[in-house]
């Protein structure tokens, strides 16, 4: 990964810590490669919304950001977003979904998502969004 795609460090000099949520093993691996290459630590991944909420609660407060798919079995990303934000009102969640119409983006933002990335995406887009979101206080 090029140096210009290096994410900033936390104030204590450590890497930002991320949970990836997607029902596609391929997408988890793909995002993990991109995020690790940018200098983030991927602490864990989840394959559906229920797992995501459970894992987020276990990782609190040592988790800095969640990438969250929307179309997933058991619990959708929108419901998982609400549950995560209910458990941690400061949670930074970035939606990463193949659905990208205005209503779903608006719903996600109203429920507390910090940003929205539509699939398919380039690594540069993920970098741009995460750099912006992580530059702001949680």
């Amino acid at each position: 990964m090029a140096d210009e795609l290096a994410l900033p460090k936390k104030p204590d000099g450590s890497n930002f810590k991320i949970l990836i949520v997607d029902d596609s093993e391929f997408m988890i691996k793909n995002l993990e490669r991109i995020l690790t290459g940018m200098g983030a630590d991927v602490l864990d991944s989840a394959l559906d919304g229920l797992q995501a909420v459970e894992k987020y609660k276990k990782l609190m407060p040592n988790i800095d950001l969640v990438t969250l798919d929307i179309t997933m079995p058991n619990m959708s990303g929108i419901d998982a977003l609400a549950a995560i934000r209910s458990a941690d009102p400061k949670a930074r969640v970035v939606m990463v979904s193949a659905l990208g119409h205005q209503d779903i983006v608006k719903t996600a933002i109203l429920k507390g998502a910090k940003h929205f990335v539509v699939k398919p995406f380039k690594a540069e887009k993920v970098f741009e969004v995460l750099k912006l979101v992580l530059s702001k206080p949680a």
Binding site: S24, F26, M27, T71, S97, A98, L99, G100, H101, V118, K119, P120
Partner: peptide
């Protein structure tokens, strides 16, 4: 699976 999910999601949009 993800390839077809992306097409269908974009089509839904």
């Amino acid at each position: 699976g993800e390839f077809t999910n992306m097409i269908s999601g974009n089509a839904a949009t």
